[in-house]
Amino acid sequence: MSGNGNAAATAEENSPKMRVIRVGTRKSQLARIQTDSVVATLKASYPGLQFEIIAMSTTGDKILDTALSKIGEKSLFTKELEHALEKNEVDLVVHSLKDLPTVLPPGFTIGAICKRENPHDAVVFHPKFVGKTLETLPEKSVVGTSSLRRAAQLQRKFPHLEFRSIRGNLNTRLRKLDEQQEFSAIILATAGLQRMGWHNRVGQILHPEECMYAVGQGALGVEVRAKDQDILDLVGVLHDPETLLRCIAERAFLRHLEGGCSVPVAVHTAMKDGQLYLTGGVWSLDGSDSIQETMQATIHVPAQHEDGPEDDPQLVGITARNIPRGPQLAAQNLGISLANLLLSKGAKNILDVARQLNDAH
């Protein structure tokens, strides 16, 4: 009898209710805020589980004197976190989706994509230029951005401005803007500013005609071990179906173009009346040469937790077992079709030249 009692006690200790789920994140304040929001949602869904947040620095956090596009290494903000995932030191990792490459290392998958916040870019102005827009900034004003995508589009749109690289986390960039006289304004992701509670610093939100956004911008991705079915089931509740389908289309477009950090590629997606609209573009580094096109596809946005595919093969690095396969494939095909259209119009040449120029500098 006593033996059975011990077995029952052991089973209770090993039951999922007692389990601590370890969540990996970057150390920056924004990353911690984003991770806290994901953990809060998981806690609400699984009140019996405990969650421990483990923060670590990544290569991208450490190399702050070089433009991201020049470092010449993929997975700048993800490699150390993936290493911890691989060694079973954490069970899942919360990322900004735009930091996750469209091809993940073997053994990993994006197990959830959370509801997207505003994906557009924002302009934050130096205190002396508050009330201005990019259009009304004085001639030769210097605007800071760490992104080739932003610089290429904005140089084309605002030729009277000069664009220079600015690195560091959000706090560091804002301090550089406010305390030094080098920059009249800087460009940042609206979602990051909003998550930090800095709505009052948003001086201008850039519309798609001015600057399309990065693939996955404004959404959070939760990376897990691809074979860890328990954790895949656990994080599945975080999937937002519309965000998922938009981001599958965007990531398929980028992957098929073979774009990345070192080339200016941008997108804009919208879901309306059962249609998914995808606009994508590529630019030369100075913005003088560009190709942009829009395509659409009829896609039914499923309700969360309709029964999805059981075999769960990944699409552009994403596993969404609780979302039907048909809409996911339709979104992926839309991204591939748009990429093929741009490639047929000469996108590869623009991107190759951009890559060579970026590598040469």
Rank of each mutant, 00 (worst) to 15 (best):
R22L: 14
R22H: 15
R22G: 08
V23P: 01
T25Y: 01
T25P: 01
T25M: 07
R26E: 01
K27A: 13
K27L: 10
S28K: 01
S28W: 01
Q29E: 07
Q29A: 12
L30G: 01
A31T: 01
R32W: 09
I33Q: 08
Q34L: 05
T35H: 01
D36L: 09
D36Q: 15
D36H: 13
V38E: 04
V38I: 14
L42E: 03
L42I: 10
K43Q: 11
A44K: 13
P47N: 13
L49S: 11
L49C: 01
L49F: 05
L49H: 10
F51M: 09
F51W: 10
I53Y: 13
I53G: 05
I54H: 05
A55K: 07
M56C: 04
S57V: 13
S57I: 01
S57A: 06
T58L: 05
T58K: 01
T58P: 03
G60T: 07
G60F: 01
D61Y: 05
K62W: 07
K62E: 08
L64S: 06
L64P: 12
L64C: 12
T66G: 12
L68F: 06
L68H: 05
L68I: 13
K70P: 08
I71P: 08
I71S: 09
I71F: 11
G72P: 13
G72Q: 04
K74Y: 07
K74V: 04
K74H: 10
S75N: 15
L76W: 10
L76P: 10
F77G: 01
T78R: 01
K79G: 12
E80Q: 09
L81P: 07
E82I: 01
H83P: 06
H83T: 13
L85M: 11
E86F: 08
K87M: 12
K87Q: 14
V90K: 01
V90M: 09
V90T: 07
V90R: 01
V90D: 01
D91M: 03
V93E: 01
V93T: 06
V93M: 09
H95W: 01
H95S: 05
H95R: 01
L97I: 08
K98Q: 01
P101W: 01
P101M: 05
L104R: 07
L104Y: 09
P105E: 06
P105M: 09
P105F: 14
P106H: 13
P106M: 06
G107P: 03
G107R: 09
F108I: 14
F108T: 14
T109Y: 04
T109S: 09
I110Y: 04
I110D: 04
G111A: 05
G111S: 07
K115Y: 06
E117M: 06
E117T: 06
N118I: 13
P119D: 04
D121A: 01
D121E: 06
D121R: 01
A122S: 10
V123L: 11
V123F: 04
V123D: 05
V124F: 06
H126N: 11
P127Y: 01
K128N: 14
K128G: 06
F129S: 08
G131C: 07
T133S: 10
T133Y: 08
L134R: 03
E135C: 09
T136S: 14
T136K: 13
T136E: 11
P138Y: 07
P138L: 10
P138N: 11
E139K: 15
E139M: 08
K140G: 11
K140R: 11
V142A: 12
V142K: 10
V143E: 04
T145F: 10
T145P: 01
T145S: 11
T145W: 06
S146M: 06
S146F: 10
S146Q: 14
S147R: 04
S147F: 01
R149S: 01
R150C: 06
A151K: 08
A152W: 10
A152D: 04
A152Q: 04
A152V: 13
Q153K: 04
L154P: 01
R156F: 05
F158D: 09
F158P: 01
P159C: 13
P159I: 08
L161T: 08
L161D: 01
L161P: 01
L161G: 04
E162A: 07
R164K: 12
R164N: 11
R164C: 10
S165D: 01
R167Q: 09
R167H: 07
G168V: 01
G168R: 01
G168E: 01
N169H: 11
N169K: 11
N169L: 09
N169F: 05
N171T: 12
L174W: 06
L174A: 06
K176S: 10
K176N: 08
L177N: 07
L177T: 06
E179F: 07
Q181A: 07
F183L: 14
I187A: 08
I187P: 01
L188C: 11
L188G: 09
A189C: 10
A189N: 03
G192A: 06
L193A: 01
Q194P: 10
M196W: 05
G197E: 05
G197P: 04
W198G: 08
W198Q: 06
N200L: 05
N200V: 06
N200A: 12
R201D: 12
G203C: 13
I205K: 14
L206S: 04
L206R: 03
L206D: 05
P208E: 01
P208V: 06
E209D: 09
M212T: 11
M212N: 01
M212R: 01
Y213F: 04
Y213C: 07
A214F: 05
V215A: 09
V215R: 04
Q217G: 01
G218T: 01
G218I: 01
G218R: 01
A219P: 01
V222M: 08
E223F: 01
E223Q: 03
V224G: 05
V224Y: 04
R225I: 05
D228Q: 15
D228G: 12
D233I: 09
L234R: 07
L234T: 06
V237L: 13
V237R: 10
V237P: 14
V237D: 01
V237Q: 04
L238W: 04
L238K: 01
L238G: 01
D240S: 01
D240E: 15
L244Q: 15
L244W: 01
L245D: 01
R246M: 09
R246Q: 14
R246P: 05
C247S: 10
I248N: 06
A249G: 01
A249P: 04
A249V: 07
A249T: 14
E250A: 01
R251H: 01
R251N: 05
A252C: 01
A252V: 15
A252G: 06
L254A: 01
R255G: 14
R255W: 12
H256G: 15
H256I: 04
E258M: 03
E258G: 15
S262M: 01
S262H: 03
S262G: 15
P264L: 05
P264E: 05
V265N: 01
V267F: 14
V267K: 08
H268T: 01
T269V: 01
T269A: 09
A270I: 07
M271I: 15
M271F: 13
K272Y: 01
Q275A: 01
L276C: 11
L278V: 06
L278H: 03
L278E: 01
T279N: 13
T279R: 06
G281S: 15
G281K: 01
V282P: 01
V282R: 01
W283L: 04
S284R: 15
L285A: 13
L285H: 08
G287K: 01
G287C: 05
I291L: 11
I291M: 13
Q292A: 08
E293G: 14
E293P: 01
E293W: 14
E293F: 07
T294V: 12
T294H: 15
Q296P: 07
A297L: 05
A297P: 01
A297S: 06
I299S: 06
H300G: 13
H300D: 15
H300S: 08
V301T: 01
A303I: 15
A303K: 14
Q304I: 03
Q304W: 06
H305E: 15
E306W: 11
E306P: 07
D307H: 15
P309R: 11
D311H: 14
D311K: 01
D311P: 09
D312G: 09
P313N: 08
P313W: 03
L315K: 07
V316L: 13
V316H: 04
I318P: 01
T319W: 01
A320T: 12
R321H: 11
G326F: 01
Q328S: 15
L329I: 12
L329T: 15
L334H: 01
G335P: 01
I336Y: 01
S337Q: 01
L338P: 09
N340Q: 15
L341W: 08
L341S: 05
L341G: 08
L341T: 14
L342Y: 13
L343G: 10
L343P: 05
K345G: 05
G346N: 07
A347K: 01
A347Q: 14
A347W: 01
K348G: 13
N349K: 13
N349Y: 06
I350D: 04
I350T: 01
L351K: 01
D352I: 01
D352C: 01
A354D: 15
R355T: 05
R355A: 04
L357V: 10
L357F: 14
N358K: 15
A360C: 01
